[in-house]
Amino acid sequence: MSALQTEGTSTDKTDKKRSDKLGDKNDLRIKAIENGTVIDHITAGQALNVISILGGGENFTNTVSIVMNAGSSRGDKDVVKIEGRELTEKEVNAISLISPKATVNIIRDFEVIEKRKIQTPDYVCGIVRCINPNCITNSEPIESKFAVAADEKVKSLVLRCVFCESVMTEELIQFIE
């Protein structure tokens, strides 16, 4: 990743860490951005997967800041800040599959101009690869499409391929690169 920055890693920050755990929002370890998107309340540990969904790779030129396992009133969370970029609906839908409680804040001139909770959509298209190698979507130039449902037995999201009806639980989800 060309412009990935993490800050505030010094070791003399025991008090600061405690204040993070207490949810002190003024003490986040990364600075405010002028224009772009802040994805907050990402499920702890999922920040790098969020970057991956956003196409993190050699061609990714935006400056990105990541905080992992930061304290908040809702427990540990990850935060990703992307400068100079607002997310598409498709990207937000993909993030919802791995982090349904995340929020997306659009920043312009250092101001939050829009703040919204991510909502898990009923369907996701062109984001996830079907787990069934014999599914038609794995051999034809067609967008994959999955119905999204919450499985109460396993307490996680379940995707059902609209084409072949294969069912995937969260841990089996493979995003299309």
């Binding site: 038609i136 051999s139 609209v162």
Partner: peptide, 13 residues
């Protein structure tokens, strides 16, 4: 008739 699951649904699109 096609060997892959979902072929008919895709065709209908």
């Amino acid at each position: 008739r096609h060997p892959r699951e979902g072929a008919a649904l895709m065709a209908s699109e």
